[in-house]
């Protein structure tokens, strides 16, 4: 035995995270044209969930300041557009809250323009809106952002293509297996039928990307409230050791 050998019991068990089927979009989704050269052509190799996969970066308070969750402040004045509150809980699929985890968002402004050099949509930038926010969930897994409702914007995927209004969300959870980047959409958007990104999600799971308007979250004479819970892969309830393979 040397000091360089990893020290652990001869056999030990690790949490096992569910492997979802029928939830995430297939990487090869031809209606979204950019997948053609970027989605892998080979099927993925099954990776056992070992120590690197069941751990992950625990990114919290050090990455955010108190004002990062309010995208309407920090500039010379107030941004244009419809002020909204977006809040909800980060859970795992066992229903347990995920506390103290970093949530990052980015979005277009009210005109449908991103504060990014690549965005050529001829809609105005807003000097009072950069469209980037972050926060850390509280002990009950709750996050809360104050922002502006983003506008729809055109893109060149197909003739007269428009993205429904959305906010990009990035989540870490507590394990490498739980990492998720997604988009939150708004109720009643008329653009869903022609959006290949939204429609890439299996139909049964698509509605989970749409937040709900909630009058109880709405602050009188100030901002509309929208609720949206985010559910990350949970640990399987029971782990059986396969003794035959030991």
């Amino acid at each position: 035995m040397t000091v360089h050998q990893p020290t652990a019991p001869a056999a030990f068990s690790l949490p096992e995270y569910e492997r979802p089927a029928g939830v995430h979009p297939p990487l090869n989704s031809p209606a979204y044209r950019s997948t053609a050269l970027r989605a892998p052509g080979q099927p993925p190799v099954l990776l056992p969930q070992h120590l690197t996969e069941i751990t992950g970066p625990l990114l919290g308070e050090g990455r955010v300041t108190a004002t990062d969750a309010d995208l309407t402040t920090g500039h010379g004045g107030e941004p244009l557009g419809e002020r909204i509150i977006v809040t909800g809980r980060v859970l795992d699929s066992d229903g347990r809250p995920v506390p103290d985890t970093l949530v990052e968002i980015w979005q277009a402004n009210a005109s449908g323009r991103y504060h990014h050099a690549v965005d050529e949509h001829p809609a105005p930038l807003d000097p009072n809106f950069s469209g980037v926010g972050r926060c850390v969930t509280d002990s009950s897994g709750r996050y809360r952002f104050v922002t502006i409702k983003p506008g729809a914007y055109p893109w060149r995927n197909h003739p007269n293509a428009w993205r429904p209004a959305h906010i990009h969300f990035s989540l870490f959870g507590r394990a490498f297996t739980q990492r998720l980047v997604t988009q939150m959409f708004f109720p009643g958007d008329p653009l869903y039928f022609q959006d290949p990104i939204f429609n890439s999600v299996p139909q049964a799971a698509r509605e989970r990307l749409i937040c709900r308007f909630d009058l109880d979250l709405t602050e009188p004479e100030w901002a509309l409230g929208f609720g949206w819970d985010i559910v990350l892969r949970g640990q399987r309830a029971t782990v059986f050791e396969n003794e035959g393979d030991a």
Partner: peptide, 14 residues
């Protein structure tokens, strides 16, 4: 438990 949230692309403005 609750249904998992599906993934979406980071898009061009990540």
């Amino acid at each position: 438990g609750p249904g998992l949230t599906p993934s979406q692309t980071v898009g061009p403005y990540l």
